[in-house]
Design a protein around this nucleic acid. Sequence first.
DNA 1: CACCAGGCAAGTA
DNA 2: TACTTGCATGGT
Length: 226
Amino acid sequence: MDTSSALSLDQAYELMLKHHGHQGWWPAESDFEMCVGAILTQNTSWTQVVKALDQLRCNQCLAPNAMHAVDEATLAQWIRPAGYFRLKARRLKAFVGVLIETFSGDLVAMLEGETSVVRERLLAIHGIGPETADSMLLYAGNHPVFVVDAYTRRIFSRHGWCSEHESYQSLQDLCHEKLGCSCCDEKVSRVEFWKDYHAQLVRIGKEFCRPRQPRCQACPLGALIG
DNA sequence: CACCAGGCAAGTA
DNA sequence: TACTTGCATGGT
């Protein structure tokens, strides 16, 4: 197998870690808040999501039962800063609907089981696509899945590790293969590694990997550009 | 002013 | 399979 790209991906992590340190993701006070944030941040900057989460918090709606009970239109008004607010209100209601009605509000129960089964369970919910499902799986459910996002694709393609239009699945397959076990074979360490790897990519992406700019001199990954 | 932000679903060819 | 469009606020 080709080990050069595997080395590059590992080197990238070392460089990012050296530059920023561990990120301690996902930024949330509970697993439920993590899941809500995952839906709210769809195609939306995190600073806007924080405003929406604060609104939910001060209206005591950051809990499964409360969110299930509240009117969808009211919920939509609270999350306005995050954009697509009617759409996301419906998606949040769909998520808590399954959580309450099928799992009695027990998020641990909803996220536990065989990874592929739980993933399909999440994808079946309206408004939850691959990235949102994988974020929930990794950060709230501690499942070993690599989260692919716009930053992942942009950074990787800019370094020649994937195509600019690489599909979600093929890019995730690449990460699962190349970043399978940098430390050891334990599932736990792989989960923690992938949590921080994705967080590092977002950090680097926000700061150095802007759209429509072929490269950035100050990027810590600059040395890896072929 | 234009462009962008940690996507997803539904429709079309 | 591979586009295209709608969704929407707020920052740069």
